[in-house]
Simulated scan of single mutants.
Amino acid sequence: MSTAKLLVVIGSTRPGRVALPVGQWIAQRAEAMGGWDVAIADLAEINLPFMDEPKHPRFHQYVHDHTKKWSAQVESADAVVFVTPEYNYGFSAPLKNAIDYLFSEWHYKPVGFVSYGGVSGGVRAVQMLKQVVTTLKMVPVTEAVNIPFIQQYFDDHHQFHPSEATEQAAQDMLQELRRWSHSLQSMRSTNHHVTP
């Protein structure tokens, strides 16, 4: 298979978050696997305002530079991984906002989830996310990384040390994303923006 572009989206913007080191870890695992050209989209750094585009994103007629940059970043990806905490049985508002900014850019891309939290490991946030991404014609893979009681995997220097089971789950998810990325390539190549 040819190299595919993987976009790892860091879905938390809260100070002191663990999403960034977890996202960096999954990005490193993808790079070590080979066959991936990996980019990280840190929503705290991108700092999108709440949706401020005057037209529906399906028209792809963006007026703000922050939207155009975000659109280009997502458009270029062949597959996506969302790294998400669980907030009150759901996922974060910044992540929902970032998803809603765009439309066709998400179409026909496989998506994996790395979630974390307390006892649930973030799976309830993922269940909500799946309803959103399937509406955007994304394809969630069954394999996922769910990390319960995540603080136990961090040392005093804020370094993430995943368990062997978590490492295996990451490997399985990334392999499945590669398969789907390849299978959906023709659909992405014929995907066109709607014009009014």
Results as ranks from 00 to 15, higher is better:
T166D: 08
A41E: 07
T142H: 13
Q168C: 02
V139E: 10
E75D: 15
Q73T: 15
P196R: 07
Q61S: 12
S12W: 01
A170V: 00
Q171L: 11
D155Q: 06
S120R: 13
Q61N: 12
M187V: 09
L6P: 10
R179K: 13
V111K: 03
Q152D: 04
H161D: 01
I99Q: 00
Q24M: 09
F50M: 13
F113D: 03
N97I: 05
L184Q: 07
A93N: 03
W180V: 01
R179C: 07
Q61V: 11
F113L: 12
T142F: 10
V126G: 02
I147D: 03
T195D: 09
P162S: 12
Q151A: 11
L95C: 07
H161F: 05
A93V: 12
K68H: 10
V111Q: 03
K5E: 01
W180E: 00
Q168R: 07
K130F: 00
Q127V: 11
L48S: 01
Q73N: 09
Q168E: 05
A32Q: 15
A125S: 12
E86K: 05
H192W: 09
D37Q: 15
L174G: 07
V80N: 06
L136D: 00
P49Q: 06
E75S: 14
V22M: 14
A169G: 10
V139I: 10
Q28F: 02
R179Q: 08
P49F: 02
Y153W: 08
P21A: 02
S104R: 15
V114K: 11
D100V: 14
T195I: 12
Q151W: 11
K96E: 03
Y116D: 01
K137I: 08
R17E: 02
F91W: 14
V9P: 09
R179I: 12
A44Y: 05
T67P: 05
L102T: 15
V38M: 02
V145M: 09
G112E: 01
E143P: 03
N146C: 12
G34Y: 00
A169Q: 15
S71F: 12
A30P: 01
W70G: 03
E53Y: 00
E164H: 10
S71R: 15
D78A: 01
A165W: 01
F149W: 13
N191L: 11
V114C: 04
A169V: 12
H192A: 09
A32R: 10
I46Q: 15
W36M: 04
D100T: 07
G118Q: 04
P148N: 00
E143F: 02
R179D: 10
E105F: 03
F91T: 14
F103E: 14
K69H: 06
E105I: 08
R17Q: 01
W36V: 07
T195L: 04
A125I: 06
E176G: 08
V194Q: 15
A125W: 04
Q152W: 01
F82E: 11
A32D: 13
V141F: 00
D172E: 10
H66G: 12
V38A: 06
A32L: 13
D65F: 07
T84P: 13
Y87I: 15
Q152P: 01
